[in-house]
Nucleic acid binder design. Structure first.
Lengths: 158, 158
DNA sequence: GTTTTATCGTTTCAAATGAAACGTTATAAG
DNA sequence: CTTATAACGTTTCATTTGAAACGATAAAAC
C-alpha cells in the first residue's frame, strides 16, 4: 500500500511553486522596466527600508548569500544607483545608501511594486489578508526551529 | 516622501523567505538520510503520485526546467531507483517508473515527508490549515493570470 | 508519398551560484 | 604591546543553472 503523499497538498511543494510564480511575475516587470535583476532588486528594496546599511546587514535582512550581495551591490554601484562609503568607525564595513539616481529610481519602483502586490492581493478580503500574514508568521517561526543556525538560505533550494 | 514599501509585509519577499526555509529544512533531511538532491526528490515524489510518466509530464507537474529534469532522471536511473523504458507507441517519450529499489525507497521517504509536514502544520488548527490552502489557491490562480504562458518557472527566481 | 512543422529529451555553453580561501580590519587574550 | 581570534567583504573555482541548439521521432500540410 503506497503512502498517501499527495504532492499538490504537500506544503513545501505548493509553497515553492507559488513563490516561484509570484517572483517570476514580479521579476518580469522590474527586469523589463527598470533593468534590475532579482538580486539587485532585493538589495535595492532593502535599502529602501533603511539607510545606510552594510553588506552584512543586507545579508541578514534578505537571507541572501554574501557573495551574491557583494556582486549585486557592485552592479548597483556601477550603475550609479548606490553610494558606497567606508564606515568611519569600522573600516571593514561598507556604508551603502542610495545615490540621487537611486533615490529617484526607488521613488518610481516602489509604488509600482506596491500596486502590483495590491492587484495580487485584491483576490483576498481584508480579513483573509490578515489571516494570510498570521499563518505565514506561524509557519515561519515553526520552521525556523528546525533549521540549524548559520545555515545560509541558498537560492538554489527550491 | 518615500513610498511606504514595508519589505517584511511585502508578499513576494515573505513568500520567498518562507519557501526557502521550508525547502531547506526538508531538504536537509532527505539529503542526509536518503542521498537525494532537491531536483531528484522532486522527480521522485512526482512519480510517487502516478506512474509511468514521461519526462515532459514531470516538467509540467513540477514547474522544473526540462534540462534539470533530464539530469535528475539520469541520476535516479544511474542510482537504480528508476526504470527508463521507451514508450511503445511514441519513441520520443520515455516511460519512467520506480524500480523495485525505488519503490522501496519511496515507501520509506514518503511517510517521513508526511510526518515532517505534519510537525510543521501542527502549529495550525484544522481550520487554519483549510484557510491556508484556500488562500494559496486563490493567490496561485490570480498570479497565473499575470505570467505569460510558456515562460518556464526557473529555479533561480528567488 | 513527400515535405514541412512540431514535440521530446539530451547536450552544449555561457552565466550564475555558493562554499571556501583570502586580505584587511577590528577585537580579545595573553 | 603582542599575539591570537573573529568579522567583513571580495575573489576564486568547481558546480549548477537554463536558454538555445541539436538529433530523433511523430504529426500535419501539401
Amino acid at each position: 500500500m503506497p503512502p498517501d503523499l499527495q504532492l499538490n497538498r504537500f506544503l513545501p511543494y505548493r509553497l515553492n511553486i507559488l513563490s516561484k510564480k509570484v517572483s517570476l511575475a514580479l521579476a518580469t516587470r522590474y527586469q523589463e522596466r527598470f533593468g534590475l535583476s532579482i538580486p539587485e532588486w532585493r538589495v535595492f528594496a532593502t535599502l529602501g527600508q533603511e539607510q545606510p546599511l552594510s553588506s552584512n546587514d543586507i545579508v541578514e535582512r534578505t537571507a541572501m548569500d554574501k557573495a551574491k550581495v557583494s556582486r549585486a551591490v557592485n552592479r548597483l554601484v556601477a550603475a550609479g544607483l548606490l553610494d558606497r562609503q567606508p564606515h568611519p568607525r569600522d573600516q571593514r564595513l561598507l556604508r551603502l545608501s542610495f545615490s540621487h539616481k537611486g533615490r529617484d529610481l526607488y521613488a518610481q519602483v516602489a509604488p509600482e511594486a506596491l500596486a502590483w502586490e495590491g492587484q495580487l492581493l485584491s483576490v483576498l478580503t481584508d480579513a483573509e489578508r490578515a489571516q494570510l500574514w498570521a499563518l505565514m508568521e506561524k509557519l515561519e517561526q515553526r520552521v525556523a526551529q528546525e533549521i540549524p543556525e548559520s545555515v545560509p538560505l541558498s537560492d538554489s533550494l527550491d
